[in-house]
C-alpha cells in the first residue's frame, strides 16, 4: 500500500492555496492583456479594465470553480455509490437528459426572446427528469438496484441520444451550431446572475453530498454490510442520486457537457488521500475547481480571440489521463 505522506488536512490546505493562486492567475490572464496589476487594482488601468475583471473574467472563473467542484465531487459520489471506478455523473442520465432538453429548446425555438435562459432551463429540466426516470426504472419495492441503474442508464442515454439525433436532423444551420457548441461545453456564458441561479442548487447538493461521506465509506463494503452496520442504504442511494442530479444538472444545463472532470479528478484525489470519502469529497471538489479553472483559462487564450469550448480542453487532457488510469487498472494496481 502506498502510505499517504501528507495528512489529509495538509492536502486540503495545499489544494485551497492552489485554488487561490489559480483563481488569481486566471483573473490576470485573458484576451485583453490585463495583468496582475489590474486584478489587484494597483495600476492605472481604469474603469474598462475593472469592468473586464469584475464582470467578464471573475464570473467566469467563479463559474469554472463551482462547475469543476460540482462535477468532480459528483463523480466521487458516483464511484463510491456504484463501487465502480469508472462511474461518472453522466451514468445517471443527467448529461444525456440535459442535452435532450437543451436540444428541444434550441431546435424547436421554444425560448423565443428568452433563449439565453430557456436553453439552460430546458437542460436542467431534461437532466432532472432523466434522473427521476432512471430512478423509477431501477427501483422495485423501495430497493434500488445499482446494476439496473448502470444498464438502464446506458439504454436511456442511447434513447435520449436518438431523440437528440432526430432534433439535429430537423435543425437549421443556426440551431445546429448552437447545439454543437452546447454539447462541447463552454463557460463563456457565465454571468453573476447565472451563478446566483446556480447557487441554491449547489448549496443543497453540497449539504446532501457532505452528509453522505460516512455512508459512502460503508457502501464501499457492499450494500449488505452497510445495512448491517446500521446505515440506511436505500435512503443514502436516493440522496446520492438527488445530490448528483442537483449538482450536475444545472452545471451541464448552463455550461454544456464537460467531460472527464467527474471521472479523472476523484482518481487523482484517491491517489493522494486514500478512499475515505470524508477527505475524498472535499479534495475532489477543490481539485475539480482548480483543474477546470486551468482548463478554461487554456480555452480562453489558446486561440485568441476565439474561445475554444472548455469540454474540448478537458477531454483533450482528460482522455489520455483516463487511458493511463485504465491501463493501471488492467495491471491490477488501480488507484481507486
Amino acid at each position: 500500500m502506498r502510505v499517504a505522506p501528507l495528512s489529509s488536512s495538509t492536502i486540503i490546505a495545499i489544494l485551497c492555496g492552489l485554488l487561490l493562486v489559480t483563481g488569481i492567475g486566471a483573473l490576470a490572464i485573458g484576451a485583453t492583456g490585463l495583468g496582475f496589476g489590474a486584478v489587484f487594482g494597483t495600476d492605472a488601468s481604469g474603469d474598462v479594465a475593472r469592468l473586464v475583471i469584475t464582470q467578464i473574467r471573475a464570473p467566469r472563473v467563479a463559474f469554472a470553480m463551482l462547475a469543476g467542484a460540482a462535477l468532480a465531487s459528483s463523480g466521487a459520489v458516483m464511484q463510491g455509490l456504484f463501487r465502480n471506478p469508472l462511474a461518472d455523473p453522466g451514468l445517471i442520465g443527467v448529461s444525456s437528459g440535459a442535452a435532450l432538453g437543451a436540444a428541444l429548446v434550441i431546435v424547436l425555438g421554444l425560448g423565443g426572446l428568452f433563449a439565453s435562459w430557456a436553453v439552460p432551463l430546458g437542460g436542467m429540466a431534461g437532466g432532472l427528469a432523466s434522473t427521476a426516470l432512471l430512478y423509477g426504472f431501477s427501483t422495485r419495492d423501495g430497493v434500488m438496484s445499482t446494476n439496473t441503474v448502470i444498464l438502464a442508464g446506458v439504454a436511456l442515454g442511447a434513447f435520449s441520444g436518438a431523440l437528440t439525433g432526430i432534433l439535429i436532423f430537423r435543425a437549421n444551420d443556426t440551431a445546429l451550431r448552437d447545439l454543437t457548441f452546447w454539447t462541447m461545453g463552454s463557460l463563456a456564458g457565465a454571468t453573476w446572475t447565472r451563478i446566483g441561479l446556480l447557487m441554491p442548487f449547489l448549496i443543497v447538493a453540497a449539504v446532501l453530498i457532505g452528509v453522505l461521506a460516512t455512508p459512502l465509506n460503508a457502501l464501499l463494503l457492499g450494500d449488505t454490510d452497510a445495512a448491517l452496520m446500521g446505515y440506511r442504504v436505500e435512503r443514502s442511494k436516493r440522496l446520492a442520486m438527488l445530490g448528483v442530479a442537483l449538482a450536475t444538472g444545472p452545471v451541464v444545463a448552463f455550461a454544456g457537457v464537460i467531460g472527464f472532470v467527474g471521472v479523472v479528478v476523484p482518481h487523482l484525489v484517491r491517489l493522494m488521500t486514500g478512499p475515505d470519502h470524508r477527505v475524498v469529497l472535499p479534495c475532489s471538489a477543490l481539485l475539480g475547481a482548480i483543474l477546470l479553472v486551468c482548463a478554461d483559462t487554456i480555452a480562453r487564450i489558446v486561440a485568441i480571440p476565439a474561445d475554444v469550448p472548455v469540454g474540448v480542453v478537458t477531454a483533450a487532457i482528460g482522455a489520455p489521463v483516463f487511458v493511463w488510469l485504465l491501463a493501471r487498472a488492467e495491471r491490477g494496481d488501480a488507484p481507486s
Partner: peptide, 21 residues
C-alpha cells in the same frame, strides 16, 4: 437500523470491496 446495529453484527460470506482500503 441504528439500534439493530448496536445489538447484532454479522460476518457475511463475501465482500464486494474492490477499492484500496
Amino acid at each position: 437500523p441504528e439500534r439493530l446495529a448496536m445489538r447484532r453484527a454479522m460476518l457475511t460470506q463475501d465482500s464486494p470491496l474492490r477499492t484500496r482500503f
